[in-house]
Design a protein around this nucleic acid. Structure first.
Length: 1040
RNA sequence: GGGCGGUUGGCUCAGCUGGUAGAGCGCUUCCUUCACACGGAAGAGGUCACAGGUUCGAGUCCUGUACCGCCCACCA
C-alpha cells in the first residue's frame, strides 16, 4: 500500500483474490467514502451548474433505540440507499438524513425489562434516575445502530444525524403543541380511551391490535323489579330479562339494559326496571337503535364506563358512567364483594356466584376480536380517563386534498385509497401517555392560582398519614407509584410479568371517596394496594407538610380544572408570581414527534438554510404498516406547520418475513440478524437479495438460499473484472468512446466494428435506458434484475468468451491467428464493464466501488475519483444497433445448436468435431463469426456452405434454426434410431407450433382486427417455423 | 361486516401499458481447460387456483367462487 494511496479502497499492486471477500473490502470501502465526504448533503452555490438541478432528499425513518436493527431496517436502508446513490450519480444535490427514535413506550418497556432482571422497577429508581437509565440504554444502542447502517452501506449524511430527543426536535414538539393548543386543536378531556393495564398508560386507537380470540358468550338474567318492599328491599316480580355478554365482570358497571326499539319481543319491557344480581343496583330498560336484534338475546347490558358502544348509548340517554376498574385491571369498590380482584379472577368468581343464584342462563362458545396492546399484547381496557387529544378533522382535510390532487403520490398507488379512507374517517388522537420516557407535555400548572385544582398522587412512603387514603382513579391514571404495589399481571399470553411486589393485606373494604369531575360525573376511586398512595390537591398536601420538592420528585399530578400554561420555553415562575409551577407529568405519544420528522430534522422551527433548500423532501420510504401511524401524520403536520407537503412521493415496502413466512420477531426467535447475513455473504448480497425478492408494497420471504444468489453474483462480477484487468495487463487502455462514435456518426457504424462489439454496445446502452426507466418508476428490483441478466448472460457468457477468442485466437490449435492489436476487444470490454459497474453501484455499492477502483487504475480518461460520484448511465448516447443484435443472436443460436448436438451425442467436451452450417442470406454473418462458432462450439473444421445440401447426409445430426441449418457428421458416434427419435420430437414440436400460428392466421377476425405489425410478425414466424420444419424433415428423410 | 393483496415449473419469486410463459435454487447428464465449482455446457419441468365474460388474441382487463394472508370496523 503506497502512502498516497491509503485512502483508496483498493491498491493496485495487490493481486486480486480468486473469490470476492466482502469482509476484507466493505469496511475499507465505506471508510473511503465517508472520509472523502461523499455522503455530505451540500447545498449548491447559487448560480452553479448543480444549483439548476432538483435536490433529492430522503429523511430516514428513524429506527427505535430499543435495540439492534433487523432485516426490515436493512430493506429500508437498501431501498433508500439505492435511490440516494442513484440521484447522487445523476448529479443531483443529495441529502439523506439518518436518525434515531426515542420510541417512548417501546424503549421504556425494554429498559423496564432490563431493570426487572436486576429485581427492581422504575418506581424504585424514581423518574429522574429511570430517565438516566434509559439514556444509558440510548448511549449504548445509538452507536450500534449507526454502525449497522454503515455495515449495510448506507450513504447517509452522518453529520446531519438527529435523535428525536435532541434540542431541535424538542423545540419542534413544543412549538407544534403550543400552536395547536392556541388554535384550539389540542384539548384536554375525559374520554373513554384504550388503557393498557400492564404498561399503565393510555394508547391511541392505532396502538391497539385486534386479535381473534376464542371466548364465551354468557347469558345472564337480570330480575325485574317493581317497586320496593316495606323494608326498602326491591320487590322482584319473578320475571327476568336475559342479556348476553362476553365480559361478565363489567356487569357491576351496568347502568341500563338496552333493546332495539323495533324489537317487538321487548316493546313492553322498555321503561321497566331490572336489578343487577348480587350488587343489587337497579337499572332501567331502554330502547336504542344501536342494538342488533339478532345477536344474543337482543337485550344488551349497557356499561358506558367500559365499552365504546355503550358509552355512546349512555351519552344518548344521559346515563351515568360507572368506572369499575383500577388502572391495573383489578376491580375497584364499585364491584362490591369483587373489589380488589383481577378482572379475570373477578369474572370467574362472578360467574360462579351467578350460577349458584341461577342468574346464569347458559354459556356459548364465541369467537371475538379483542383489543390488545401492540407493545405487550395485554388485553386493553376501555377506561374513562382525562387525557390530551388532538382534534384531527381540520388537519385531515388538507392532508386529503394534497393526495387527491396528486401532489403526493403513493408507490404502489393502491395505498392512496387506504390512506384516504382512513383520513376521511379520522378520529381524535389521544396523544398523552402516562410514561416517563418521551417528550414531556409542555404544559404547566400554577400552584398559586390552581393549587386546589391540581390533584397530586404521592406514593405511600411519601404520603403524610393524615391525608386521605387511597383515592386511586382521580381522573387519569392514578399514581405510578401505586402501580408498584399492585399484584403481578396475570394476563395470559403476556410474557412479561408485571413488577411483582408482595401483596399484603386486602384492599377490599377501603373507604372510597368520590370526586366530582369537572364534567359533572361522579368518578369512583379505588384502593389499589396495601400501601395506598395519597391523592390530594396540591394545597392539601402542602398544608399537611409535604414539601414542594417531594411532590416534584415523587408525585404524579394532573390539573383537571386548572388553567394550563402552554409554553415553548420552560416558564420560570407562575405568571401570578411567587408560586411554583408543576409541569404535566404525561409525555406525548412517540408518533407526535415522529410526525414532525421531515422538518424537525432540518432545523424547524428555525428557518434554517437546510430547511429552505431541502424541504419539501423528495421521497418518504417506509413500510406500509405505518401509513396511519406515521405517514398520514407527517403529511398533516407538515401542512399544518409549514403549509407545504413534507414529500412528493411515498414509497412503501412490504414486510420481510423469514423463509417460513413468519413475521420477524426477536422474542420468538424468528428474526434474521442482518449482520449475521452480512458476515456470511456480504452486504451487497443481502442488498441485492432484498431488492429483487419482491416488488414495492409486497411482503417477501427472505431465505439464505436467496442470499447466496446475491453473493454468487458479486463473485461473478469480481471474476469478470479480475479477468478483464488481467487481459489489460500493464498497459493502460482507453475505454471505447461511444459518445465520440455516436456524435461523429449518428448512424451505427455497421462496418467499422465487429458484430459482437456493436451487439454488446447496443445492449449495454439499451440496458441503461431501460434501467433508467425502471428506476423512475421505482421498479428498483426489476432494474437490478436486468443488470444481473445482462452482466451474467450476455456480457460474461458471450462477449467475454468471444473476447478471449479475439485475443488469444486459436493459435494453440494452429489454424488461425489471433486478431491484430488494433482490433483488440479491450476498449469495448473495458467500456462495457465500467458501464455495468456504474449501473450496478446503487444496488451493490461495495463490490462495485472496489472493482471500479481496480479497473479504472488500468484505464485512461476516467475523470471521477470514485464510482460513488461517477455519472450514472442513462443510455443517453442513443446508440442502438438492431441488426447487430439480430446477427449476434444468430451466432449464439448456431453455437448453442452445435453444443446441443454434442451434448446429446455425448461427444467429449474438449474434442473438435467437423460441422457444416448454411444460412439463407446470412452467410456473411456466419463467415464473420466463424472463428467464434469454431471455438465456442469446438467445431472444426467448420464449413460454411451456400446450401445445406452441400453437407454430408450420412450419419449426421441436423439442427435447424431460424434461417440457419447446421449439420454435424457423427461417424462412429451415430445412432440412427436415436437421431430419428430426436428429429421426430423436434418435428412434432414444430408442427404443433406451426399449427397454432396457422390457425391464428386463418382467422379472418385476427387478420382484420389485429394490428398489421402483429399479423406480419405472425406470418414471419410461421414462415420460419415451416422452414425449420422443412429442414428437419429433410434431415429425417436422409436417415432413411 | 367492509377493503386490499396473494394463488405462475418441486421451492422462492419476476412477468410494469393484453400480442410466442421467465429467473434463482433444486433436479438430470457432462466438465476441476489458463476469470469464476460462489463456476461452465446441455437438458427435464408450467392446463399461469377455479368458473364465466370482454377481445382477433388474456398469466396480463372485467365479474364471480375457493383457499391463504393482511388492514380497517362499537355486533355486546
Amino acid at each position: 500500500m503506497t502512502p498516497s494511496n491509503d485512502q483508496r479502497p483498493t491498491t493496485n499492486d495487490q493481486p486480486m483474490a480468486k473469490a470476492y471477500e466482502p469482509r476484507t473490502t466493505e469496511d475499507r470501502v465505506y471508510r473511503f467514502w465517508e472520509t472523502r465526504g461523499y455522503f455530505k448533503g451540500r447545498i449548491p452555490e447559487p448560480g452553479s451548474a448543480v444549483a439548476a438541478r432538483d435536490p433529492f432528499c430522503i429523511i430516514m425513518p428513524p429506527p427505535n433505540v430499543t435495540g439492534e436493527l433487523h432485516v426490515g431496517h436493512a430493506l429500508t436502508d437498501t431501498v433508500e440507499d439505492i435511490l440516494i446513490r442513484w440521484h447522487r450519480m445523476l448529479g443531483d444535490p443529495t441529502l439523506w438524513v439518518p436518525g434515531v427514535d426515542h420510541a417512548g413506550i417501546a424503549t421504556q418497556n425494554v429498559v423496564e425489562k432490563q431493570l426487572a432482571k436486576e429485581g427492581i422497577s422504575r418506581h424504585d429508581l424514581g423518574r429522574d434516575e429511570f430517565e438516566k437509565r434509559v439514556w444509558q440504554w440510548v448511549g449504548r444502542y445509538r452507536p450500534i445502530i449507526s454502525n449497522q447502517h454503515r455495515r449495510l452501506g448506507a450513504s447517509a449524511d452522518w453529520s446531519s444525524e438527529v435523535f428525536t430527543l435532541d434540542d431541535t426536535p424538542q423545540r419542534a414538539v413544543r412549538t407544534t403543541f403550543k400552536k395547536m393548543f392556541d388554535d384550539g386543536l389540542i384539548y384536554r378531556g375525559e374520554r373513554l380511551i384504550n388503557w393498557c393495564p400492564r404498561c399503565r398508560t393510555a394508547l391511541s386507537d392505532l396502538e391497539v391490535e385486534h386479535d381473534e380470540q376464542q371466548g364465551n358468550l354468557w347469558y345472564i338474567r337480570y330480575p325485574v323489579v317493581d317497586g320496593a318492599h316495606a323494608d326498602g328491599s326491591p320487590r322482584l316480580t319473578g320475571e327476568h330479562i336475559t342479556v348476553a355478554t362476553t365480559r361478565p365482570e363489567t356487569y357491576v358497571g351496568d347502568v341500563a339494559v338496552a333493546v332495539n326499539p323495533r324489537d317487538e319481543r321487548y316493546t313492553s319491557w322498555v321503561g321497566r326496571t331490572v336489578m343487577l344480581p348480587v350488587i343489587q343496583r337497579e337499572i332501567p330498560v331502554l330502547a336504542d337503535e344501536a342494538i342488533e336484534m339478532e345477536f344474543g338475546t337482543g337485550a344488551v347490558k349497557v356499561t358506558p364506563g367500559h365499552d365504546p358502544t355503550d358509552f355512546e348509548i349512555g351519552q344518548r340517554h344521559g346515563l351515568r358512567i360507572v368506572n369499575v376498574m383500577n388502572d391495573d385491571a383489578t376491580l375497584n369498590d364499585e364491584a362490591g364483594p369483587y373489589a380488589g380482584m383481577d378482572r379475570y379472577e373477578a369474572r370467574m368468581t362472578m360467574l360462579r356466584d351467578l350460577e349458584e343464584l341461577h342468574y346464569l342462563e347458559k354459556t356459548e362458545p364465541h369467537t371475538m376480536q379483542i383489543g390488545t396492546c401492540s407493545r405487550c399484547h395485554t388485553v386493553v381496557e376501555p377506561l374513562m380517563s382525562w387525557q390530551w387529544f388532538v382534534n384531527m378533522g381540520p388537519l385531515a382535510k388538507p392532508g386529503i386534498a394534497v393526495v387527491r390532487e396528486g401532489r403526493i403520490k403513493f408507490v404502489p398507488e393502491r395505498f392512496e385509497r387506504i390512506y384516504l379512507n382512513w383520513m376521511e374517517n379520522i378520529r381524535d388522537w389521544c396523544v398523552s401517555r402516562q410514561l416517563w420516557w418521551g417528550h414531556r407535555i409542555p404544559v404547566w400548572y400554577s400552584t398559586d392560582e390552581d393549587g386546589d385544582k391540581i390533584i397530586v398522587t404521592l406514593p405511600a412512603e411519601w404520603a403524610p398519614d393524615h391525608v386521605a387514603q387511597a383515592p386511586g382513579n382521580v381522573a387519569k391514571a392514578p399514581s405510578n407509584m401505586a402501580q408498584a404495589s399492585s399484584p403481578a399481571e396475570r394476563t395470559p399470553g403476556d410474557s412479561q410479568p408485571g413488577t411483582a411486589v408482595p401483596h399484603e393485606g386486602s384492599p377490599a373494604g377501603t373507604a372510597v371517596p368520590h370526586e366530582r369531575s369537572p364534567a359533572g360525573r361522579t368518578v369512583p376511586h379505588s384502593g389499589a394496594g396495601p400501601h395506598p398512595p395519597a391523592v390530594a390537591t396540591y394545597n392539601e398536601l402542602r398544608a399537611s407538610g409535604v414539601s414542594h420538592e417531594t411532590i416534584l420528585r415523587y408525585g404524579t399530578w394532573s390539573g383537571v380544572g386548572a388553567t394550563p400554561i402552554v409554553s415553548i420555553e420552560t416558564p420560570e415562575r407562575s405568571p401570578a408570581g411567587g408560586g411554583h409551577l408543576l409541569q404535566e407529568t404525561d409525555v406525548l405519544d412517540t408518533w407526535f414527534s415522529s410526525g414532525l420528522w421531515p422538518f424537525s430534522t432540518l432545523g424547524w422551527p428555525e428557518q434554517t438554510a437546510e430547511l429552505k433548500y431541502w424541504y419539501p423532501t423528495s421521497v418518504m420510504e417506509t413500510g406500509y404498516d405505518i401509513i396511519f401511524l406515521w405517514v398520514s401524520r407527517m403529511i398533516m403536520l407538515g401542512l399544518y406547520n409549514l403549509g407545504e407537503i413534507p414529500y412528493s412521493t411515498v414509497y412503501l415496502h412490504g414486510t420481510v418475513r423469514n423463509e417460513h413466512g413468519q413475521r420477524m420477531s426477536k422474542s420468538l426467535g424468528t428474526g434474521i440478524d442482518p449482520l449475521e447475513v452480512i458476515e456470511k455473504y456480504g452486504a451487497d448480497a443481502l442488498r441485492y437479495t432484498l431488492i429483487t425478492s419482491s416488488g414495492p408494497g409486497n411482503d417477501m420471504k427472505l431465505s439464505e438460499q436467496r442470499v447466496e444468489m446475491g453473493r454468487n453474483f458479486a463473485n461473478k462480477l469480481w471474476n469478470v473484472t479480475r479477468f478483464v484487468i488481467s487481459m489489460i495487463g500493464d498497459t493502460k487502455v482507453a475505454p471505447f468512446d461511444i459518445d465520440a462514435l455516436v456524435s461523429a456518426n449518428r448512424q451505427p457504424p455497421t462496418t467499422s466494428l465487429p458484430v459482437e462489439d456493436r451487439w454488446i454496445l447496443s445492449r449495454v446502452e439499451g440496458l441503461a435506458r431501460s434501467v433508467d426507466e425502471q428506476m423512475r418508476k421505482f421498479e428498483l428490483g426489476e432494474a437490478a434484475r436486468q443488470v444481473y441478466e445482462f452482466v451474467w448472460s450476455e456480457f460474461a457468457d458471450w462477449y467475454i468468451e468471444i473476447a478471449k477468442v479475439r485475443v488469444r485466437g486459436a493459435t494453440a490449435e494452429g489454424t488461425r491467428e489471433a486478431v491484430a492489436a488494433e482490433d483488440s476487444p479491450l476498449p469495448v470490454l473495458a467500456y462495457v464493464l465500467e458501464r455495468s459497474l456504474r449501473l450496478l453501484h446503487p444496488f451493490m455499492p461495495f463490490v462495485t466501488e472496489e472493482l471500479w477502483q481496480a479497473l479504472t487504475s488500468k484505464l485512461d480518461g476516467i475523470d471521477q475519483d470514485a464510482l460513488i460520484v461517477a455519472a450514472y448511465p442513462r443510455g443517453e448516447s442513443g446508440y442502438a444497433d438492431a441488426a447487430a443484435e439480430r446477427e449476434m443472436e444468430l451466432l449464439i443460436d448456431v453455437v448453442r445448436a452445435i453444443r446441443n448436438i454434442r451434448a446429446e451425442k455425448k461427444v467429449e467436451p474438449g474434442k473438435f468435431i467437423e460441422a457444416y452450417v448454411a444460412a439463407d442470406g446470412a452467410r456473411g454473418v456466419l463467415e464473420a463469426g466463424a472463428l467464434y462458432i469454431e471455438m465456442l462450439s469446438r467445431a472444426r473444421p467448420l464449413h460454411i456452405v451456400g446450401d445445406i445440401s452441400q453437407a454430408p447426409k450420412d450419419q449426421v445430426a441436423t439442427a435447424v434454426l431460424e434461417g440457419v441449418t447446421a449439420v454435424v457428421p457423427l461417424a462412429g458416434l451415430f445412432d440412427t434410431a436415436a437421431e430419428r427419435a430426436r428429429l421426430g420430437k423436434l418435428i412434432a414440436d414444430a408442427e404443433a407450433e406451426a399449427g397454432r400460428i396457422d390457425a391464428k392466421l386463418r382467422n379472418e377476425q385476427f387478420r382484420a382486427k389485429a394490428p398489421a405489425k402483429v399479423v406480419a410478425a405472425e406470418e414471419e414466424r410461421l414462415a420460419a417455423v415451416r422452414a425449420r420444419l422443412d429442414g428437419l424433415r429433410a434431415g429425417l428423410a436422409e436417415l432413411g
